[in-house]
Design a protein around this nucleic acid. Structure first.
Lengths: 234, 234
DNA sequence: CATAATATTTAGTCTCGCCTAAACATCACG
DNA sequence: CGTGATGTTTAGGCGAGACTAAATATTATG
C-alpha cells in the first residue's frame, strides 16, 4: 500500500513494460495483459507477474482481469523513454545517415543505455525537434507532448488534398515500401479514389499515381493540406 | 572440453568480464580472480563462478588458482568491446561536446547497446581514428591494434623534450586536473627536475612550469619529441 | 619447514525475469 | 441462463548472476 518514494535505476525490462503500457493506453483504455504480452513478445503469465511488481512500486494501478494503467510516476518515466527513443531516431537519421526503416531497432537498444545528458545534447544538436523521422511527436524533457490527432488515409475524403503528418508502423518492410512511393511526412497528395468495402486507395502525389491497400494506408496519417506550412521537411 | 562453436549475443556481464580480463592481461600474466573482482567491483566468488562459465564457453582458459587467459575467440570479442568503447568516446568528444573526463562513464553503458553498424558509421564520421581522446589505441574492425609502448613521465630523463601520447586513467578528477595543467595527448613538454625517492616531477610546457606527484605522473605516457609530427591534435 | 597471510574456490542463497501447465474469470451467444 | 471461447492469474520451475560464509590452496616469512 505504501507507494515507494524513489525510483532506483529502472531495469531494461521495466522500461520496456512502461513504454508498452503507455503506447497501449493511447487507445483510451487500460492495457490488457495479453496485449502487453503480444507487444513485448512475452508470455501472458510473465506479464501478469511483472504487472504485480510494478503496481507494488507505484508505477501503475491494476485491477485483476481489468488491465493496467500508469500512475503519474509511471507515465512520467514512460514518456522519458519515448523521448529518448524518438530523439535517438531523429539523431541517427540526421547525423549518421540512417534510414527511417532501420532506426527503430537501433533506438530500441540505445534508449536503455543513454544518459539524460546525452539525450539533451542530441536534442540540442537537432534544434529541439518536435517530431521524429516518422512524424511521431517527441515528448519534451518536462514530459509535455503534442498528441495531435490526424486522419488515417482511408478516412480522407476523395478529391481532398492532404499532407502526410505521420507514418505509424515500425516494420522496416512497410516503411521501405512507403518510401519508394514517396510517402513520408511532409508529402502532399490527393486521394483520387477509394474502392468500397475497405478496398485499395488511389492517390496522386505530384505527377505520380499509386494504389495502396487499405491496411497499409491505415498507418499513413494526414491532415488537410492547408496545414502544409506547419509541417517540417527534414 | 568441446569448444562451443557459436557465440550467442553476449550478456553485458560477459562483455564486461572479457574486457576486464583483456586489460589485465596487458601486463603479460593471466588475470587473477581478485584483480578482476576489484576492477569490476564484484566479490571474488562471483568472479570465480563466471570464470568457470566462460571457460566452458571456450572464451578463456583457466587453471585453478592460476588465473584466466583469453582464448583467440575471447580476445576477439574483448577487442570488439574496446573498439566500441573508444570509438564512442572519440565520437562524443568530437561531435557532442563531451569532455575527456566524462566520456568514459557514458561509453561504459553505450558500448553494450550499439550495433556494429553504428560503430562503423561513427568511425567513418571521425575519419577512422587510431586513438581515442585519452590517446588509447582503437582496435581496428578486424581486431588489429597498435600496442605502442610509451614511457611514463617519471621515467623520462631530466631535460629531455617529450610529447604526451597517452593518459592512462579513467578517473574524472584526475583527468580534469591534468587538463587544467594542459597535460593532454599532443602536449610537448620538458622534464625540468625529478625529486629522488619517487618524488614529484617538475615540468615545463611552453612558458609554464608545473610540479606533479609521481603517482599521477605515472599515468602520463610520453615518447621522445622527435615523434611530435606523428601525433594527432584533435 | 612450519605457520601466517593472502588468494581462490566451494557451498548454499537470493532476486529478477522469464517459462509452461493448470486453474479461474469474464463475456458473448444460443 | 448455462456453456464455450477468450483472457488472466496462480503454481511451480529454471537460469543468470550476484552475494556471504566457510573451506582450501598458494605464497611469504620467521
Amino acid at each position: 500500500m505504501a507507494a515507494a518514494l524513489i525510483q532506483e535505476p529502472l531495469t531494461r525490462s521495466v522500461e520496456d513494460y512502461l513504454k508498452a503500457i503507455y503506447h497501449l493506453s493511447l487507445k483510451g483504455e487500460p492495457a490488457g495483459t495479453n496485449d502487453i504480452a503480444h507487444l513485448l513478445e512475452l508470455s501472458p503469465p510473465s506479464v501478469s507477474g511483472m504487472i504485480k511488481r510494478l503496481a507494488e512500486q507505484g508505477l501503475l494501478t491494476h485491477a485483476p482481469y481489468r488491465g493496467a494503467e500508469l500512475t503519474a510516476d509511471g507515465r512520467r518515466l514512460a514518456l522519458r523513454m519515448v523521448r529518448r527513443h524518438r530523439i535517438i531516431e531523429a539523431y541517427l537519421v540526421q547525423f549518421l545517415a540512417y534510414d527511417w526503416d532501420t532506426v527503430h531497432e537501433e533506438a530500441e537498444r540505445l534508449e536503455h543505455a543513454v544518459s539524460d545528458a546525452l539525450i539533451e545534447r542530441m536534442a540540442t544538436a537537432l534544434g529541439d525537434p518536435r517530431v521524429d523521422p516518422h512524424g511521431d511527436p517527441i515528448p519534451g524533457a518536462d514530459g509535455s507532448i503534442d498528441e495531435l490527432v490526424f486522419v488515417p488515409l482511408p478516412e480522407v475524403k476523395t478529391d481532398s488534398r492532404v499532407v502526410i503528418r505521420r507514418v505509424e508502423t515500425s516494420q522496416p518492410e512497410r516503411l521501405r515500401y512507403l518510401a519508394t512511393l514517396g510517402l513520408k511526412p511532409g508529402t502532399v497528395l490527393t486521394v483520387v479514389q477509394q474502392q468500397p468495402f475497405n478496398g485499395p486507395i488511389t492517390i496522386r502525389s505530384g505527377a505520380q499515381e499509386h494504389v495502396i491497400g487499405a491496411e497499409l494506408a491505415m498507418s499513413v496519417l494526414c491532415s488537410p493540406a492547408e496545414d502544409e506550412n506547419r509541417v517540417r521537411h527534414p
